[in-house]
């Protein structure tokens, strides 16, 4: 069987559900971030796969580049917030962080 669009879509579906499980099951906020990265990567794979099998439509590539830029910005801000939370609580368990201000 020749490698077609569905092969890539299956990989992306598995990656997405693994990311969902990572977000739901972890209590450390950095590991939640890693699950988010998996989900963003699976979306990117879908963009690129559809772009390829629509006759190399370049718009999928541009959308992927924007997603990568936004992921970089998101991780930078999220890690800054996590470092602040760590200075205050001395742990980063999302279950026990329940105050926005003192």
């Amino acid at each position: 069987m020749e490698i077609g669009l569905t092969h890539y879509l299956v990989v992306s579906a598995l990656l997405f559900s693994l990311g969902v499980f990572g977000i739901v099951s972890r209590k450390n906020s950095i590991l939640v971030l890693m699950g988010l990265e998996l989900i963003l990567n699976s979306a990117n794979l879908n963009f690129i796969a559809f772009s390829k099998f629509k006759g190399l439509n370049i718009e999928g590539h541009i959308a992927t580049l924007f997603v990568i830029v936004l992921a970089a910005a998101e991780v930078a801000v999220a890690l800054a917030i996590i470092l602040n939370i760590y200075q205050h609580y001395h742990h980063i368990d999302v279950d026990e962080i329940n105050k926005l201000k003192e």
Binding site: I30, L33, E37, A72, A76, L79, L83, H91, I92
Partner: peptide, 15 residues
């Protein structure tokens, strides 16, 4: 080069 290095720094700084 960027995101993973940031995440590794986050892991090492917070736990």
């Amino acid at each position: 080069g960027g995101i993973l290095v940031l995440i590794v720094f986050g892991v090492m700084l917070t736990s």
